[in-house]
Each structure stands twice: as structure tokens, then as C-alpha cells.
């Protein structure tokens, strides 16, 4: 996808994106826990800065957004709980409960230092 983005950008065009990823230096057990708690493709094999470089991008910059990632995950949980009756009526109880469980698992993985979120910015030469 990154190579496709490079092709679609005009010369000197820029891409900026957010992505969730596993922290560096995890044990196998931590890696498994983080991968289970995060989105489906979170266990990307290489850092996104490397992937961008390999795709041909330059001026690659990464900014850590993990503290906000934790606070927003917590905010989703709290706000969902605050509106539980209306949301259960809309989504169904099973979906409501499942989403909250996913968020709880994800928040645990963030707070354990397993999951991180970053902003990446890069340019086409």
C-alpha cells in the first residue's frame, strides 16, 4: 500500500498517517498478547519508518501518540458505559459487551507497554 501511495502522489507530495503497532523488544509472550489485543495487522514485521523508506519515501518522521491512544481508548470505554442503555438498544447487548471487552484488552496492552500508536509523515522525492 505504501508503494501505491508513493505512485499516486505528485513529486514532493506528502503522506501523513496514524498507525497502531507493537512496541520494540517484546518477548514472544508479550508479542502474542499485544498482537491479540491490537488490530488485525498490528504485528507488522518491520517498523513503519523502514517500510516507508523501502517504498521510496524520504524525510520520514515519526511522532509517538501512545499517551493519547491510552486516554482515547479509556474515553471510549467510559463514554460507552455512560450511554449504555441507548447504545445497547442500537447495537445489541452482545456487540456492546464485545466492544467494551476489546477496548479493555487493548487498554491493558497499551498500559503494559505492548501496544503503541504513532503519526508518520513522509514525502515523495
Amino acid at each position: 500500500m505504501l508503494r501505491a501511495c508513493l505512485r499516486l502522489l505528485r513529486p514532493a507530495g506528502r503522506t501523513a498517517f496514524h498507525t497502531i503497532h507493537l512496541a520494540d523488544g517484546l518477548t514472544r509472550a508479550q508479542h502474542r498478547r499485544g498482537a491479540r489485543a491490537g488490530p488485525v495487522a498490528v504485528a507488522c514485521s518491520r517498523p513503519h519508518t523502514q517500510l516507508l523508506g523501502a517504498a521510496g519515501f524520504v524525510d520520514v518522521r515519526e511522532t509517538d501518540l501512545t499517551p493519547e491512544f491510552a486516554s482515547v481508548t479509556r474515553a471510549w470505554m467510559e463514554s460507552y458505559d455512560a450511554h449504555r442503555p441507548e447504545l445497547e438498544a442500537l447495537l445489541g447487548r452482545d456487540t456492546f459487551v464485545a466492544r467494551q471487552a476489546e477496548r479493555r484488552s487493548q487498554l491493558g496492552a497499551i498500559e503494559a507497554g505492548l501496544l503503541r500508536r504513532s503519526m508518520l509523515v513522509a514525502s515523495r522525492p
Binding site: T15, I20, G38, C44
Partner: peptide, 14 residues
């Protein structure tokens, strides 16, 4: 190719 000046995505790669 060269269709865009900027490309954005949020939590798509993961």
C-alpha cells in the same frame, strides 16, 4: 499516478 498532493489514513495499516 501523480493524482494527489497529499494522502492521509488513520489506523489502516494496522
Amino acid at each position: 499516478p501523480d493524482s494527489f498532493d497529499a494522502i492521509v489514513h488513520t489506523d489502516v495499516l494496522c
